[in-house]
Design a protein around this nucleic acid. Sequence first.
DNA 1: GATGAATGAGTGTTCATTCAT
DNA 2: CATGAATGAACACTCATTCAT
Lengths: 226, 226, 226, 226
Amino acid sequence: MPKVGMQPIRRSQLIQATLEAVDQVGLSDASIAYIARVAGVSNGIISHYFQDKNGLLEATMRHLMAALSGAVRQRRSTLHDDTPREHLRAIVAGNFDDSQVSGPAMKTWLAFWAASMHQPSLRRLQRINDHRLYSNLCCELRRAMPVDQARSAARGLAALIDGLWLRGALSGDAFNIEQALHIAYEYLDQQLAKAEDSNVGANSFAKGSAAAPFNTPGQTSDLLSD
Amino acid sequence: MPKVGMQPIRRSQLIQATLEAVDQVGLSDASIAYIARVAGVSNGIISHYFQDKNGLLEATMRHLMAALSGAVRQRRSTLHDDTPREHLRAIVAGNFDDSQVSGPAMKTWLAFWAASMHQPSLRRLQRINDHRLYSNLCCELRRAMPVDQARSAARGLAALIDGLWLRGALSGDAFNIEQALHIAYEYLDQQLAKAEDSNVGANSFAKGSAAAPFNTPGQTSDLLSD
Amino acid sequence: MPKVGMQPIRRSQLIQATLEAVDQVGLSDASIAYIARVAGVSNGIISHYFQDKNGLLEATMRHLMAALSGAVRQRRSTLHDDTPREHLRAIVAGNFDDSQVSGPAMKTWLAFWAASMHQPSLRRLQRINDHRLYSNLCCELRRAMPVDQARSAARGLAALIDGLWLRGALSGDAFNIEQALHIAYEYLDQQLAKAEDSNVGANSFAKGSAAAPFNTPGQTSDLLSD
Amino acid sequence: MPKVGMQPIRRSQLIQATLEAVDQVGLSDASIAYIARVAGVSNGIISHYFQDKNGLLEATMRHLMAALSGAVRQRRSTLHDDTPREHLRAIVAGNFDDSQVSGPAMKTWLAFWAASMHQPSLRRLQRINDHRLYSNLCCELRRAMPVDQARSAARGLAALIDGLWLRGALSGDAFNIEQALHIAYEYLDQQLAKAEDSNVGANSFAKGSAAAPFNTPGQTSDLLSD
DNA sequence: GATGAATGAGTGTTCATTCAT
DNA sequence: CATGAATGAACACTCATTCAT
């Protein structure tokens, strides 16, 4: 059985098993023995590839974060145009990527958040993640509005994303991505529209965000209503 | 030492100790022994007043829920007027009541949410709580907009509330109530404004979200009351 | 089963079980489970009365040290006369007390000594013990000889006691107390005789110990310098 | 990398690593992984050169014993004269050879002694070692005194050597070889002197050990300096 | 010859729970 | 009422050993 060069394979295998285990029984009952059983390996192997259980959990969280980053990055790399709106929609959509709203992912994220409040290593990761979303949003929003307004909008949009995600996770049902996107996109457009309004008269929408049509309630509604 | 009629005192004492313990070391490390130590009582007494540890946790969650309900109810009972906006603002504000955004409360809520994903008794409570917020919001929103729109707005507002709360909890810093209220109130007003626009039929004067009027309490109330 | 006031009983019971366990299988195989089985109690009880295994081992070592102290003290309190020789013989004999040369005691002492080289808590106790023997010997020897000579004799006598004890322990056979005492007493008498010889000319051998002349630096230095 | 004829090199390398490991963390924490890390080799190689961990420990103990034998043998092969006293002094000095009183050696010896009480393979070695010292001493002492007296003196001298060694090991400080030699030599001379005294009148000191002069301080000093 | 992947039994310890006092 | 003694299963983790490469 033992082979060389198994490290990346085993690590991935164990991270997947961790997600499954947390999905099935929750983080507190996802013992090393349980995870090893799910992965179909022995208990001891976890210490072999990760220093300890915490190392495995940290790696699992990093995995989720990497998936999130990848989902966002991919969407941002294939935009129709370079407007802030498109970028922001990509960021929003990336946060509702399948990799993030699957049962295992949602339960694990939630468990990690709770655990991060008292576990320095997870806390560090969580803060990085939190800040990355806010930072990404803020950066794009600033292209369409003053900095203070951008900050506020970023806070609101980040909260809305996390809140939709959280309530989706807690609902127990499958995550309704379309619904979440609709609500978040609407919020985004409202923020952009508000910025646009403030700009009227000094037609500085050149650099702008938000093309006119988006602000037409009728169309928007039609397009997004589900 | 033993006295009669200690039950409510002891129960409250143990619930407070649970909140403190979760705040200090997290739910997973808040053992019965730890909680008992914090409460200054013996280990065995917890089984005496609550069936088991789960009973204590459930009671603690009920305590938080009751505090939330009370915070909302109190605000709704002292409104300046009976407009949906005022009610909704009261609901929002109630969710950011001191009892809900204190360190112990936030950590315990978060831990309970995570635990509720795999613990039926907590799950039941959490669903009641989730639904209550949505339901309260939806009920008032329906007074200002069509039911579909109200549902969507309720979902968005509930998500925003939870998201603001969540990000506040995870930030590690003291919760910035004002900032959260500002963002949530703005969202609320935007939703009400949108409804208003749709309602005007012909003269939907602004294209938009049109800030000014809404911020004038008097006018806003007049406009939105139905 | 559970009763109040069991602490001293259980502690003693567990210390005895530790001695038996170490006697039977050695310190490294004397697991908590084994000790608990020997004591006829559950595994968990050890953590209840001692913080952890180390606490139990430390308590066991303290027990042996207390037995040693007691054995010496008892002999010194019932001496025929107050001469240094009698005191020193009592100290020597106390070190070969039944409580110290029984199989369990010898094996446990030896195991503790080895463990003390890398375990601070045990090391502290061992150093206290080592120093106590040397100090006791030195104190009495000084009544019969100059300080430098007394120190050297104390080192020799302490080493001889420990060596006799060690070789007895390692022999595997029952400890031959008489033989050990004979050898140690002989060494003691030789040291005292040597001191006496040096004293000749200033007939102060009356009470046997005789102080003053020995403290003459010149002589002492010459004789003992090494 | 793999070469032929590596066996003696690897074995020596691993034995040295074992001594280092025991010196650093103690026998109980000197796991195969730790020893392998110290030696800079893989875990599995230990089983390759020694049957198992016990094989490695046994080999390490044999190494120490061989070093001790060598230290004694070397000294006995370069004596000024063939008197028992010189031989005995050589034996004593060999026991305090640098190879025996270094930190790693002392800690490993002590650990092996403790372990030998419950491990047949180590026990066998330890008994051989113990007996060798006694036997060597006794053999030479018999040249200077009657057999009973020689046995007793051998027991005493062996105990004194081991005791000095033990207390040196436990002290934590560097071993004071000079001091130990002084005490042991003195004991030896006392024993030889005693034998000589018993012999007076039947001037059989011819084969002897040289009696009277030893109690003459001046001469003693000369004789003991080395 | 040498590696390191893999095992699974065993470790000390923690814990919720029970119950005699 | 309240205590804390007692249990024993479960936990994360370590370890000597095996063996395919």
